[in-house]
Amino acid sequence: MHIDAEAIEEGVWKIKLSGRMDVQGSQEIDVKFAGLTAGERNAIVVDLSGVNFLASIGIRTLLLNGKAVSQRGGKMVLLNPDATVTKALETAGIDTLLPIFTDLEAARHAVARQ
């Protein structure tokens, strides 16, 4: 898997994941992902448009990072998962904890400090 981060405005980060988020894929990005959601980054949009497979191990990775951000008073949301990935998120009941957006502007607004 690949993982990249860019600041889309002051204090708001977009983390883009791509590839197959199975056991192997999740292991490949776990450490870097945790590093990117640590520290002062409290407003995070995770772009899932490049992820074509999401297993429970990948959902676990998303949850752990979302939890870390939320424990510091921040917010993490998901952007543009494909149909298969959306179904996995909804079936696991995770879409209520990590909200899904299909529009970057709306996602940015949801995580930015009011």
Binding site: S56, I59, R60, S70, G93
Partner: peptide, 18 residues
């Protein structure tokens, strides 16, 4: 059990549910 808040999310058992 589905957690109400992210802070309470138990990580595990999701595979069976899926």
């Amino acid at each position: 059990v589905p957690p109400a808040r992210l802070a309470d999310a138990v990580i595990g058992g999701l595979g069976i549910k899926l």
